[in-house]
Amino acid sequence: MSYEAKIVPIERYGLINIRADFSAQRVIGESLGHELPVTAHTAVHTENFSVLCFSEDQWWVRCNLEQETDLFNQLYDLNKHNHCAATIISDHFSGFSLIGTDARKVLRQGVSIDLDDYASGQCTRSGFARCGASIQIVEQYFHYDLFVESSYASYVNLWFDAARKGVQNSQSG
């Protein structure tokens, strides 16, 4: 007996961290072919990548692993003449997809944010379990992608298992 939810590691994704000041944002937007989202918790989704806004000067570009190097090189070049920084972080973070009718019942054990406030397509960063997570809301209540610092990936696996079916029934028992 357990919640109706599954946790799947996200494989083969590219992830680039972007910091940029006001004028650099424009330049980066032009380079990517899409303005950077600037409202809190919003993201833009294009065919090839998503850009997630986590702060007034902080974004993630999420793409396929195959595109990561080229996208990174393209963005890194902009560091020279603009106050911005592009960094590959797809190893620094580990991703988990939480999917199912009971996805919310699993997630609410780990985050204290109001899940009614974050709609499909949005993103946010919050406390999660004991390590914090960056969250992409793929489908509100049913599909959340969570990224945690990779050194916590093993702990987060145990955590999800226990959250889904109880500590007694999981390996951590």
Binding site: H41, S55, S112, T124, R125, G132
Partner: peptide, 11 residues
């Protein structure tokens, strides 16, 4: 100011 109301253990 950016994220809205959050529990103090995020800070």
């Amino acid at each position: 100011p950016w994220c809205g109301q959050r529990n103090e253990d995020e800070f």
